[in-house]
């Protein structure tokens, strides 16, 4: 991780910037004009094998099928709920896609307005109509805990390489944490621990560009939560 960062200079590009003129293929957020690959969003230039693309710094969440997301019920119909998953489009959750047997018109008994739910994106068609489901292992109505909203482009930073950041957060704060691909994060634990976890997540979002972020977050949590019970199962600190 360190080596990779040191080798790749983090080059910021803006829409219209030329990414490559030597015959590479356009990757994500790139297009070709007159044989030159150009960026279409502001972000960091990213080369992968023979393609060159842009990792966006900002922007709205666009669901893709298979994403695990956390949403909030914003409307209730007789046979479906409308869920806000932070995308530009509403995501309908049909009664056939919930693990309960729901009578027609009885939807509000199961999920009410403002309830948070852990969902999976079933499909997104070309006109961006979204379908979500709750019929999969681990998907459920979320009760207790708290929700944190961060930019969806920072989700990968919260998880980090093979989940190193998120597992450290979970271990050190002793909280249950679920990260939705749409940037909604559910944190559940003791009030004090959850406070620190939320602050740490906010800090990750703010300092996503920083080097050695995992170390910094670790120090931050240690300063807030003197490690007692966690201290022996984790790496030797103090």
């Amino acid at each position: 991780m360190e080596k990779r960062n040191a080798r790749q200079t983090r080059e910021i590009v803006v829409p219209g910037d030329i990414l490559d003129g030597t015959g590479m293929k356009p990757g994500e957020n790139a297009y070709v004009l007159d044989g030159k690959v150009r960026a279409s969003v502001m972000g960091v230039r990213n080369v992968f094998q023979n393609t060159v693309g842009v990792i966006p710094l900002k922007g709205c969440y666009m669901p893709t099928s298979g994403d695990t997301v956390i949403g909030v019920i914003v409307d209730i119909g007789p046979s479906n709920w409308l869920v806000d998953i932070g995308a530009p489009y509403p995501a309908p959750l049909h009664v056939n896609e919930v693990p309960w047997k729901v009578e027609f018109g009885d939807t509000s008994r199961y999920l009410g307005m403002g309830n948070a739910v852990l969902l999976k994106v079933l499909s997104v068609d070309e006109s961006k109509k979204i379908q979500v489901t709750m019929k999969d292992s681990g998907l459920r109505k979320i009760e207790g805990g708290r929700l944190v909203k961060i930019s969806h482009s920072k989700v990968s930073r919260v998880i980090d390489k093979s989940g190193s950041m998120i597992s450290m957060l979970k271990n050190m704060t002793d909280c249950r944490i679920t990260v939705g691909q749409n940037g909604m994060i559910w944190v559940d634990g003791d009030d004090e621990n959850a406070d620190v976890a939320v602050l740490a997540i906010k800090m990750i979002e703010e300092k996503a560009q920083a080097r050695d972020l995992t170390e910094k977050i670790k120090e931050f949590i240690e300063s807030k939560l003197p490690q007692s019970e966690e201290y022996d199962d984790d790496e030797g600190e103090e």
Partner: peptide, 11 residues
């Protein structure tokens, strides 16, 4: 628009 992260051909 570019600051909002909206995909566009050019500024």
């Amino acid at each position: 628009l570019a600051d909002a992260g909206i995909p566009m051909r050019d500024i």
